[in-house]
Write a protein that binds this DNA or RNA. Structure first.
Lengths: 344, 344
DNA sequence: AAGGCTTATTCAAACGTTTGCAATAAAATC
DNA sequence: GATTTTATTGCAAACGTTTGAATAAGCCTT
């Protein structure tokens, strides 16, 4: 920090007034004459006075800062969420302190600790893939720290969770493929320890059931790391090993879908004529691949903004956690593009 | 913040010692008996003591927090840079406070102000597209605030800038197209107020010159907003209006390249046989589009980490700004993929 | 036994604010 | 002219920590 930044005391000295008077004058408290207010403000301006938020925090035991903990920043979905968080936080006068865990539990815990040390007013958390027990979260909840979980959320009493309707999204996607006339729909699933992935798989299964289609376990393949390379690999095998090939693929996310798409093209299969493909998340890549990829839109920005609204309301005691019926579920939306449109 | 968080005073009361002793004991200062140290640490543990970083900041006039100001979070390049920043900051014990300007100058200024209020130890800035004069930066520099600019950097005395060798990257890309036997290379340029874009265009021009190829101004088109839609539009016209069409395109970034690719396919042109395309940045999409897109890799993570290293070194007075020869230029790397490989 | 070192601890001020209460002075009331 | 009211300002403590200087006790030295 810069030495010589003007403080209230400097203004006080300059005007031969006390610090308390300056403080009140700057804040337009009643009981300060208009004349002094004016003078104080002039001098403040002249000295380029800037209130010291740290001192204020210490005094008020409030930092006007929220801590955001996410698995990774370089991720279309999460960066979109951050954007929503940042937007609301900024407009309500809060700072955002950000850390990424790189999917490491240890880092998650240590981030929580530094943030606690930094007296942040509340947490926004989407936990890492490594996180399987939630004790470190329970502790925070017990101590009444305001927390909102989003996307990857724990099953904890009293936790406020903001999620997307993964089940419905997956259901819609699968239903859409069925309605387009595809008969054997495979699913490239995500890691089983993430609820969101389980929900997507559940939506997929339920849609099949609802349309009296058999669920074939050999066509549900886990593509845990979610990279296009891995998915390409898996899809290759899927195509090669089965005489009776699937004619559609519902993928757990868009990267996986893109990988599957590459494998299909490589095998000489036409999309959407021979194989229909639907992804999940509706990333930018959907409109850039050829053919354009149908996908389930997740309102990332809204997740961020909604979650932040809730958190700030909790912090400012406008509402308490138990007044919020959790989880808050935001709607997904199926975006149909070429990759799944067999029929006109 | 949670009420009832244990403080040094609480430990002091419990052990009938003074606050100063506790402080020193916790920090293993000499002059405290081993016995007391032990007792203090036990009690600290028991009470779940956590140092109050805010109080520390006030005392030390140091917040161990750096402020990051970027145009937008939802952007592959910037999110990668953030990741690099976060990594280094975390490992050196600093917090990262993040704001995005959404390309608005006003927001840039106001972010600087809140960060100043929050006594951050230094700034990392990539400025907005609206920013054309740099007075608000000069002021900070004059007051000796540590700042490192990255990617979009101002021309200011005493500023430490970290950038990528855009010129060389563009030169390499263009040279590559020439060597592949393309004869008429168009350039889809970026907004002229960003130095990075001007540099890329300059690299393109110089590569043409160096190979005795004519520079045709009608084939240098500004695609200012950088969206694939816009670029598709422009490329369509480029193809339609000229009898003597370009047979290659060097785009200012990958999105623009992807848009151009779509327009070419639409017009029935084969890539890379009829048209060669090279983008810039090497985003994820490069491997997902068909054919895969050649591009110039920008080391985003390294920009972030290098810039942060420099900033923290400045903050910790290991080096001063004038000892750093600015700009620090990181190398780009041409990644050749299918979209530009006419020859084997 | 008095002075001088060590060792262990405490005191008090400081960082920049805010805020309940007290103090002062001027003005208004009777 | 004495008393109350009103308007304006100041005092001092507090938030949690660090740190230079001061203190107190114990031990050694001569």
């Amino acid at each position: 920090m810069k030495i010589g930044q003007a403080t209230i005391k400097d203004i006080a000295r300059e005007l031969n007034l006390s610090a308390s008077t300056i403080s009140r004058a700057l804040k337009d408290y009643p009981g300060i004459s208009d004349e002094t207010k004016k003078k104080v403000k002039e001098v403040a301006e002249k000295l380029n006075y800037r209130p010291n938020a740290i001192a204020l925090s210490l005094r008020k035991s409030r930092s006007y800062t929220i801590g955001v903990i996410i698995p990774e920043v370089v991720h279309f979905f999460f960066s979109t969420v951050i954007s929503g968080i940042e937007e609301v936080a900024f407009s309500r006068g809060y700072n955002v302190i950000l850390t990424q865990t790189n999917e490491k539990l240890e880092r998650e815990k240590s981030s929580i600790n530094t943030m606690l040390s930094n007296q942040i007013d509340g947490f926004m958390i989407s936990f890492s893939k490594e996180t399987s027990d939630f004790d470190h979260f329970s502790q925070l909840l017990e101590q009444n720290y305001p927390i909102v979980f989003f996307d990857r959320v724990p099953d904890l009493d009293g936790a406020v969770n903001v999620i997307v309707d993964d089940y419905q999204g997956a259901y819609d996607a699968t239903k859409h493929l069925i309605e387009q006339g595809y008969n054997t729909i495979a699913h490239l699933a995500g890691p089983k320890n993430l609820k969101i992935c389980i929900e997507r798989e559940r939506g997929y299964r339920d849609a099949l059931k609802a349309h009296q289609m058999p669920i074939r376990e050999e066509f549900i393949l886990e593509c845990a790391d979610g990279t296009p390379e891995h998915s390409k690999e898996i899809t290759r095998k899927l195509i090669a090993n089965f005489a009776d090939k699937p004619d559609a693929i519902f993928a757990n996310n868009d990267m996986v879908a893109a990988g599957a798409m590459m494998a299909c093209k490589e095998a000489g299969l036409r999309i959407p004529e021979d194989v229909g493909i639907v992804g999940f998340s509706d990333w930018q890549i959907c409109t850039l691949v050829d053919p354009s990829l149908s996908s389930v839109y997740q309102p990332g920005f809204q997740i961020g903004s909604k979650a932040t609204e809730l958190l700030l309301d909790m912090i400012e005691k406008k509402i308490s956690a138990d007044q919020i019926q959790s989880p808050v579920v935001l709607n997904t939306k199926l975006i149909m593009r070429k990759s799944s449109k067999k029929r006109e």
